[in-house]
Design a protein around this nucleic acid. Structure first.
Lengths: 117, 117
DNA sequence: CCAGATCGTTACGGACCCGTATCATTATCC
DNA sequence: GGATAATGATACGGGTCCGTAACGATCTGG
């Protein structure tokens, strides 16, 4: 049973959520940062810089810089992989989980407000 | 009949669409630009710089710069209001309508892929 | 008319992000 | 061990955006 959304509903939803994100002057993540954050919190670990770069179709420095920013915001952490010390494992944080949860609530709340017209 | 989305579905949808937006190296609009674009195309005209600034809760220069970028991309146009020449009216374009439509399709397509688990 | 208000834009200094190229560290394989 | 490969981080030059403050153009009211 797929999720049924009509184009007009999708646009209304997209707009309302983005309005909230813009008005909430704290969390203004770029599309890349959002994609990284959600990938780390939705997909099974482990997550590496290389793996994320491949999934997003971008270069490694892009991931490194995004991790710098997301780490500064406390939304995730980096740790050396002790098995293979070349790798860096990206780990979740409490603050990050809360931010993801808040985003989920934001979307679902606005979905409720959108009539099925 | 409200639109029913559970939090886990919302997050999957948000991630998949953002992954597509990141991989599509053309249209990487910021959250503010997206909010402006969708407001212009979903809400009734006329749209002014001041009105958009108030709706988004940001300052006027932010809107001006976003309109510069969106205009350079051909997604909308500015026109002097002849009745009150202090005002600037933001108008839609064919390319902008297509971009909005493409975004709507992107969201609805990914919604279909998300199982109702 | 002319002072004041309103509208959108521009100037400026600073911060962030990008893509390419390069680097330091670590593992692999003969 | 030593050459090679792989990983993530960094350097650099360039572009975009931000927030505050100022600006020119235009309307309004006495």
């Amino acid at each position: 049973m797929p999720l049924e959304i009509r184009p007009s509903q999708a646009l209304k939803l997209w707009r309302q959520v983005h309005l909230d994100l813009v008005r909430d002057h704290d969390a203004d993540l770029s599309a890349r940062q959002t994609a990284i954050l959600l990938t780390v919190y939705l997909e099974l670990p482990p997550h590496t810089v290389r793996g994320l770069a491949k999934q997003l179709g971008v270069t490694k420095p892009v991931i490194t810089r995004a991790l710098d920013t997301l780490g500064k915001l406390g939304l995730l952490t980096r740790k050396r992989d002790e098995a293979d010390r070349r790798n860096v494992v990206i780990q979740r944080t409490v603050a990050g989980a809360l931010a993801v949860e808040r985003l989920a609530d934001l979307v679902t709340e606005h979905a409720k407000e959108i009539g099925g017209s």
